[in-house]
């Protein structure tokens, strides 16, 4: 059981670090996907452990949400790139103080 949880934690850490340190919004996006899938892995693992169906169900929901999110997120990134010629998250600071 432990290897699944450890793998899930490692994946989540990699995803979170990616989000925090990378400037390219597409890479940041990938980091987010990685964290979502790390969570999925945990869900499935615990579902198996407890012989319960709810964890697997949650994993499917996460996948659906992730798919929808990819569509919206990529559209935003493309749109931002069109107007600003940049995909760096540091340049998207219209709302700063």
């Amino acid at each position: 059981m432990t290897p699944y949880i450890v793998l899930s934690a490692i994946l989540f850490a990699i995803g979170a670090t990616t989000v925090l340190v990378r400037r390219n919004s597409i890479v940041v996006f990938m980091g987010i996907e990685l964290m979502l899938n790390a969570a999925n892995l945990s869900f499935v693992a615990f579902a198996k452990l407890n012989a319960a169906i709810e964890g697997q169900l949650a994993a499917f929901f996460v996948m659906v949400v992730a798919a929808a999110e990819v569509v919206v997120g990529l559209a935003i990134i493309v749109s931002v790139f069109r107007s600003r010629r940049s995909v760096s998250v540091d340049d998207e600071n219209l709302m700063r103080h």
Partner: peptide
């Protein structure tokens, strides 16, 4: 507190984390 709104998405994310 205004100074926290620095416009860097990553810093917001770090705060959330």
């Amino acid at each position: 507190l205004r100074l926290l709104q620095n416009g860097f998405v990553r810093s917001y994310a770090a705060l959330m984390a």
